[in-house]
């Protein structure tokens, strides 16, 4: 379970996030929607431990972030908005590279399985030769190597073809169902959120956020 308690973020005097509270249960898929600059990326980065809130706290399965940052990070999978891959390496080498540096040991077979599950079949191809959709898939696959309990995706389907988008979304749904992963997802696209998410949070309205579920 992910608990967000009274989380506030200020840049100077400007409140980007003001006293946000919500809880997300195991296996839930939650979408964050909002205008540009509304604070959804900020919230996602706070949840990803890349930024700390001005006040308030975040707990993942009862572990407060600020006290157990290392343990928390082990449980997080973060998919950045930019493609964070080694362009010169093949799909396989990218997977193996990050497996070596991760907390877990995986066989090549297991790594390949992650990719096949999301229809990424160009195992030996160099990343620079992949299509945008395939790069997005690999971007996601790498974040799943250590089987995170909390998966954070920052606009993971920006600028890709419909087919890849459907495949990625199908995979994420399956993931939350099978392994109980908490998935948080930012997007501009309401229809995508509706299709994938159990509930959605609108950020940027007054008051600062809106729980669609509670409406």
């Amino acid at each position: 379970m992910l608990e967000i308690r009274e989380v506030t973020k200020k840049y100077g005097r400007k409140h980007v996030l003001d006293r946000i509270n919500f809880q997300i249960m195991r296996g839930e898929v939650v979408g964050l929607i909002g205008e540009n600059g509304a604070g959804k990326s900020t919230l996602l980065q706070i949840l990803a431990t890349l930024m700390s809130p001005t006040s308030g706290q975040v707990l993942l399965y009862q572990q407060p972030y600020h006290k157990h940052i290392k343990q928390v990070r082990k449980k997080i999978g973060y998919v950045p908005q930019d493609i964070a891959l080694w362009e010169q390496l093949s799909v396989k080498d990218n997977m193996v590279f990050f497996e070596k540096l991760s907390w877990v040991n995986r066989t090549e077979q297991q790594l390949k399985q992650i990719c096949t599950d999301m229809q990424l079949n160009q195992w030996k191809e160099k990343v620079k030769n992949l299509s945008g959709g395939m790069k997005r898939k690999l971007n996601l696959a790498i974040s799943l190597i250590h089987e995170p309990e909390l998966l954070l995706l920052d606009e993971p389907t920006v600028g890709i073809d419909l087919k890849s988008r459907v495949e990625i979304n199908a995979y994420l749904k399956e993931l939350s169902k099978q392994k109980g992963t908490i998935i948080i997802y930012t997007s501009h696209d309401m229809s995508e959120i509706k299709e994938l998410c159990d509930r959605a949070l609108i950020i940027g309205d007054d008051p600062f956020y809106h729980d669609i579920l509670n409406q």
């Binding site: 431990t49 890349l50 997080i76 990050f98 991760s102 974040s143």
Partner: peptide, 9 residues
């Protein structure tokens, strides 16, 4: 951007 991933390594 890859550098970001090291946070979780």
């Amino acid at each position: 951007h890859v550098r970001l991933r090291f946070q979780y390594m």
